[in-house]
Amino acid sequence: MARSIKKITPFLKLALFLGFFIFLFNIILNNEGQTVLAILPLNIPLFGHIYITIEVIIYSLIAISQLLLVIIAFSLINALINPDELMKTFLKMKMPYLMTFLVTSSLRFFPLLMKDLDQISDVQKSRGLEIDKGNIYSRIKNRIKIILPLLANSLERSIQVSEALESRGFGLKKKRTYYKHLTISKLDALIIFFLLFFFGLLICFRFIGYGYYQIFPKFTTISISITDIFLILFIIISNIIFLLLLKLRSKMI
């Protein structure tokens, strides 16, 4: 668990970094909303005066949390799923083998790519390249001097990899066995059912009218009814059950 969190921290950092800019740009460029908190004394051409409104602040906070959610979801896939398991799942879903091999082998070679990147930037720095100096334009230009050798390297690597694949009989026979089949246990089925059920339920609620919030032109205070409280409790409890099921599964393997 701690290791998984460690794995996703760089992605979280990236998300917060992007989030900061989302916030900044919204404040400066978005002049909608009626509850004005302050008017900055600046007058920017094309944009006019900058109004800071509560609506914009709420809007950008929601946007940031949405971004965080997407990034966490994807980085969790990366951190928790074994590429080979992923391949077996794809195969189970009747994806062609070549396609799945492409995906999983790129996951295997990605860390090597990062290692190469570090090495190349060390070499180019040692050859007198100032990477972090100058304006944005020259910085980008300098990064290209690291990316281009990386591309050339990867091309060379791909030739070596395909040679090795040839000599391991890759694609020799039309049929192929799969060592370590993916079996779906009852617990797996339960988890999948639970996930689908929950997903369906959320969509239903959305259709009924939950989950909407009108920010512009003027924000309104939220009133919470008893059904709302039940709903929130329901979501929290189901999440806990779901986590327990996952924990149980990881213990069984």
Binding site: N82, P83, D84, F101, T104, S105, R108, V161, L165, R168, G169, F170, G171, L172, K173, R176, T177, Y178, Y179, K180
Partner: peptide, 16 residues
């Protein structure tokens, strides 16, 4: 090409 040692050893045999 694989994620762990056992699967790597199996890889060529799977292909055959």
């Amino acid at each position: 090409f694989s994620s762990d040692v056992e699967r790597e050893i199996a890889f060529g045999l799977e292909n055959l």
